[in-house]
Design a protein around this nucleic acid. Structure first.
Lengths: 218, 218, 218, 218
DNA sequence: TATGAATGAGATTTCATTCAT
DNA sequence: GATGAATGAAATCTCATTCAT
């Protein structure tokens, strides 16, 4: 769908990769993605990644400085793709409820398609200051979008909000952790999965009602 | 045969502790609490805890089997106290908006007063299946409370919700992660703290508007 | 049966014990004996002994310097009693086959009644040079008795043996390890116990035939 | 895909080792063997083994899970070799006394050449149920051979034995512990070593006389 | 004497990273 | 580039022994 990022032909040290090297690097990234999702970031060892990728342990260091660097790469790709998806959509046009729903749908599907990255960076954000900052940056984008929406609604006199930024933080927290719970943790105590439609509708409901202080149309 | 010294106390695990032992155990718990909050659960080593508590490394094992056992104890106390706080309040009486606000206030102050436990168990839930389950249990309480509220509102014909449990999950996720972000992570990219009032008002706003699909009174 | 050894009223440092102290010391010895037999010497911790004895950990050191000292005491009592039992019997009188049988019977019953000491000292002899020497001393008694018997038989012209001491060593090894296997290890792969009679008869058979180079009478 | 380097070897556990790895593994096994014999199994630490082998501590875990695994490997090799040595010899042919002598000679030389394994597994059998079972298995082979011999002698009407299996157990105990005492413990209180010939002759004497109830020929 | 908490040396095990082949 | 063995620092946990009460 999206073209390979320019970074893919170029490892950290700036040198170019041969085709063979390129394949190895991709295999390692794919293995890491898989393991981060299934075992968690902290519980994944370098040796797990190379084994899963069918490569020798030492080969890992040909392409990455350490596990953080892998996540850094994955997080970058993740952020870029989420931004792409938002950019492709005109959130200012259309019926408000539809716009909100579209935003939630993009968020949900991005998280679903990148659950490994979501799991890893969410977890890493709790272990490591660097990734805490990184994660805040990624979160900020959606949060600002929401805050802008709240302000626009207020400007239109449809609802008031004494603190749009904090409300946006709360709604962003809801989106993030709701996705984490259902896509990675495996749901709540009494229910382990939901359909895409229920997920998106629920996220939409909370966002729409909070921003507009009114029920959804129909 | 000989009577227990007056100084003996009965901690959770059923064994008797002398006053001296009781103090050591408390010192270790306090140290763990402090470190879990400041360095995070995973980054805290047993040796850090004993050092902070001014005890020898080996003394840790007089009181706990391992680091998990410390968190288990803290989590238990946390859960018990949050439940106590909720039990003390009659959430069914009074004006709805006030009830919601009260619930949010309890949640926020519980998390604030137990930010160490919140941080630790949140983190541990991502590293360890056991704590993931534990955390789900703790979360379930507030979630069910919210779901009940949504159903009551629907029964009163004030608003509709096609899926109260999932909405409650979303709102619970908001509460949890909002508290985590502001009380432990140190806020968002462009703002590092908020007042209790702003926090509670914001949480209340999201909850109230989502449940009632209407603006707050006044 | 046998009177309390003089050592029982006197701990290692030469001081006398009060009645209370005497009871504690006995409780610890009994506990050690029990644990040495069931868990083995090496696998028994000081804390296990005091717990089994219903005493506080620290009390152990009131009576013994360490675990070795307990075994030393038990071994001493064991050696003394085995020697007593042999001394009570006149091995030179009577029909030869009966004498051999009597010797084996004493050996077997001593080991059976002191299986804890046997287990402990056998094990300790393999871990610790001091007990290896101690065990050799204990073994030497029976071995010399056997060697004397072989020489007497040779002197009587009933059989020859080029190396009575080594043969006695082999027969002593048989006695020791046969007792260990059946009384402590719980028998062989396909049979877990034998009657006293079969045990004694078998030991007798090997000894008698080896010494006399002839079948037992009848 | 790429062919295995010519230097790769196939050790017991199924993984492939490079020549270098093979050498390290052998060095560790040799070091363990040496230390088990001189210091005993229980007194040998993993660090002792790696130091003796001139390897880093961590390297041990490249080849073995723990100390038990090393002994398991040594025990396996030991058992296999003893069985080989017996298999190579036709114990049913020849003059009975020579057959018995041959069996004892094999036993003695096997134990002498594998005194490290003998010491270690003997000791471990007293500390650990797993090795107790293992050791019983290894012992069972010789014991059954002896029991068969006793039955054959009885069938030929040369001697009687009311309980061939228990007699075989006693004779097996003699062989095992006699070898242990003279090859590992360093002999008896008054004599520290014996020649191979005296050892084998003595073992033979006890076995032959017990089984045949008669003096050896000549 | 009795108690049990305190101590810390020592042993095991893990794993990120380096490096020789 | 690829390989996998080598390394050793760090962390966990145990337990004999001491000691204050």
């Amino acid at each position: 769908m999206s073209p390979a990022p320019a970074s893919e032909m170029q490892p950290a040290d700036g040198t170019l990769l041969t085709a063979r090297g390129f394949r190895s690097r991709e295999a390692l990234l794919a293995a890491a993605r898989h393991l981060f999702r299934t075992k968690g970031y902290a519980n994944t060892k370098i040796a797990d990644i190379t084994e899963e990728a069918g490569r020798a342990l030492g080969s890992f260091y040909t392409y990455f400085d350490n596990k953080e660097a892998v996540l850094e790469q994955l997080a970058e790709d993740f952020k870029a793709e989420v931004e792409d998806r938002f950019a492709e959509t005109d959130l200012n046009a259309g019926e408000p409820h539809e716009v909100v729903r579209e935003l939630c749908a993009i968020y949900w599907s991005s998280c679903r398609d990148h659950s490994a990255e979501l799991a890893a960076i969410f977890q890493a954000s709790m272990l490591d200051d660097h990734f805490a900052r990184r994660w805040r940056e990624i979160r900020a984008d959606a949060r600002n979008r929401i805050a802008d929406g709240i302000r626009a609604v207020a400007a239109a006199g449809l609802a008031t909000d004494p603190d749009p930024d904090v409300t946006a933080s709360a709604l962003g927290s809801m989106l993030d952790y709701f996705c984490y719970v259902w896509l990675i943790e495996g749901g709540e105590a009494d229910r382990s999965s939901i359909s895409d439609d229920v997920a998106v509708s629920t996220m939409t409901r909370v966002l729409y009602r909070t921003v507009f202080a009114a029920p959804e149309p129909n």
